[in-house]
Amino acid sequence: MVVRIMGEGQLRLSNTHLAELNKLDDELLAEMENGDGPGFRHTLAALLTKVRELGTPLPDDSLEPSELILPSPDATLEEVRDLLSDDGLIPG
């Protein structure tokens, strides 16, 4: 699957990592629902770091459709809230 981190670019990521990423996504969703700004900031950074570690960057000139779009590292809690679905940032 192709994942886009807003403001950074795209990475190819194996579907086998979705369960691991969903754990962080669930934490992020709970922190957003509780208004936990510091927890949200920490978990968002952890989620993006994990995607960068597990993914392979695509060339800058490559424009493939992204199955997942994640917020930039400096996104606010309100901005991320607007991106969320009922499943969080990562469906499943």
Rank of each mutant, 00 (worst) to 15 (best):
T49S: 14
V51D: 04
V3W: 06
V2E: 06
D60F: 03
R81Y: 15
A75K: 03
I69G: 00
S85D: 07
D87M: 06
I69A: 00
A75Q: 10
L47V: 00
Q10L: 02
P57S: 03
M32W: 11
K23V: 08
S72E: 12
G35N: 14
S85R: 10
N34G: 07
H17Y: 15
M1T: 03
L24N: 06
E20I: 09
L83D: 05
S72D: 14
P73K: 11
G35V: 12
I69M: 06
P65R: 11
N34W: 08
L11N: 02
D87I: 00
P91N: 03
L44Y: 08
T49A: 14
S14R: 13
E20Y: 12
L58A: 03
K23W: 04
K23F: 11
S66P: 04
M6E: 14
K50I: 00
I5K: 02
E33D: 13
L21S: 11
D25S: 06
H17M: 10
G37Q: 13
T16Y: 12
R52W: 13
E31L: 01
L89H: 02
E79I: 03
S72C: 09
G39A: 13
L83G: 01
E8L: 03
R12T: 12
L83R: 06
L24C: 06
R52V: 11
G7Y: 05
I90M: 06
E78S: 09
G88S: 11
A75C: 10
R81W: 15
M1G: 02
S14K: 12
T43W: 08
G9Y: 07
P65S: 07
G92K: 04
N15C: 11
T49E: 15
E79C: 07
G39V: 08
P38W: 03
S62Y: 09
L54N: 12
M1W: 04
A45I: 02
G55I: 01
S66V: 05
L54K: 15
L29G: 01
S62H: 09
Q10N: 04
N22D: 10
A75I: 08
D26P: 01
D74A: 13
T56G: 09
D25Q: 03
G92V: 02
I5G: 03
T76N: 10
P73S: 13
D61V: 07
A46Q: 10
P73A: 11
T76A: 09
L83T: 04
L63I: 02
F40K: 00
T56Q: 14
